[in-house]
């Protein structure tokens, strides 16, 4: 009888355990001190991981509204809805090609909802803070790397997603300032890819075919960096020994670094950006920070010895957000 009772008790424990275990993903939310909204296009996971880590550490609750494709109208509407929802703060990536996003930011400001931009800045949008890389410096950093690897003598092509994007433009400016010091380094081509895979392939092939003297490339954004490597890795172009410095970090970019397709990549500290954004909003709401701040985080030059696993682990830790 004792054995049977023990068995039934064990069974009950198992049932209760199973009940709780499978209920966990369906748990009920709870009101926390601060409600933030993170509106973002598809960006690296590092930002999300940083925000999640900050939420956990600081007791805030950040709702993520993510879009697979960059659509400024949708992003702007998401910001407006956050404004209607009267959130405590909005975090977003300041990537804009029209007035929609700045207008949405303006609306938030009107409703006294703080807006913090990360990764990319919109200096004239009325945002309260920007946390991210110093794009001028990041571009200069890329220039220095390329200068060193080409020994000051190169025919350079610049591939950008869109030069109307202020960040990329700043990066290009910083890059140009550095290479200007070396007279033998010439920028022969500046091409916009519009972050489209087919277009990247097409323009990259044409560029390589039409300019055989081309021996260096600077890629100003992560999306294009992801796509360009594929073309450069093709057998027809491998013998060209083109020195390439790209921007950002991903599985593909790391692979190209390892294969020697890319010489280096300028990597932003995305995790820190996300974490610091939440931290700043909390401080701002508590009167410990002021509007109009710009916080620049250092960029890293990643080569073949880059600790990708550690970076990946850190970036993916915010998946559950």
């Amino acid at each position: 009888m004792k054995k049977i009772v023990l068995l039934i008790v064990v069974m009950l424990f198992l049932m209760v355990g199973v009940q709780f275990y499978w209920e966990s993903p369906m748990e009920q939310g709870e009101p926390l001190a601060y409600r933030f909204t993170f509106v973002c296009p598809s960006v690296g996971k590092g930002l999300t991981a940083g925000i999640a880590a900050a939420d956990e550490a600081l007791g805030t609750d950040t709702k993520r509204i993510e879009f697979e494709n960059f659509n400024e109208e949708e992003l702007a509407y998401a910001v407006l809805k956050a404004v209607y929802a009267n959130v405590d703060g909005i975090i977003m990536v300041g990537r804009s090609t029209s007035d929609a996003l700045p207008e949405a930011i303006e609306q938030a400001e009107k409703e006294e909802i703080p807006v913090i931009l990360v990764d990319s800045d919109l200096p004239d949008s009325g945002r309260d803070c920007y946390i991210g890389a110093d794009n001028q410096e990041a571009g200069a950093q890329a220039g220095r790397v390329l200068l060193e690897s080409t020994e000051g003598q190169a025919h350079i092509a610049v591939v950008a997603s869109s030069l109307s994007d202020a960040n990329q433009k700043e990066r290009l400016d910083g890059f140009l300032k550095v290479i200007k010091e070396a007279p033998q380094m010439k920028v022969d081509q500046v091409i916009e890819s519009q972050s489209d895979g087919m277009r990247v392939r097409k323009i990259a092939q044409r560029m390589l075919d039409e300019y055989p003297e081309l021996d260096a490339i600077f890629c100003t954004d992560e999306i294009t960096s992801d796509l360009l490597g594929e073309v450069l890795a093709e057998e027809a172009y491998q013998s060209r020994e083109i020195r390439t410095v790209c921007f950002g970090m991903s599985e593909q970019i790391y692979g190209y670094l390892q294969d020697g397709v890319y010489d280096a990549s300028i990597v932003q500290q995305s995790f820190e950006q996300g974490y610091r954004a939440v931290e700043w909003l909390r401080q701002y709401l508590n009167g410990q920070a002021e509007s109009g701040e710009m916080i620049h985080l250092e960029t890293l030059v990643a080569g073949q010895d880059f600790d990708f696993e550690n970076w990946k682990q850190r970036s993916e830790s915010g998946e559950t957000l």
């Binding site: 993903p25 939310g29 809805k81 929802a85």
Partner: peptide, 13 residues
């Protein structure tokens, strides 16, 4: 409702 954190956030909004 026990429909997850995201649902709760949206309902709060």
């Amino acid at each position: 409702a026990k429909a997850g954190v995201q649902f709760y956030r949206d309902v709060r909004d």
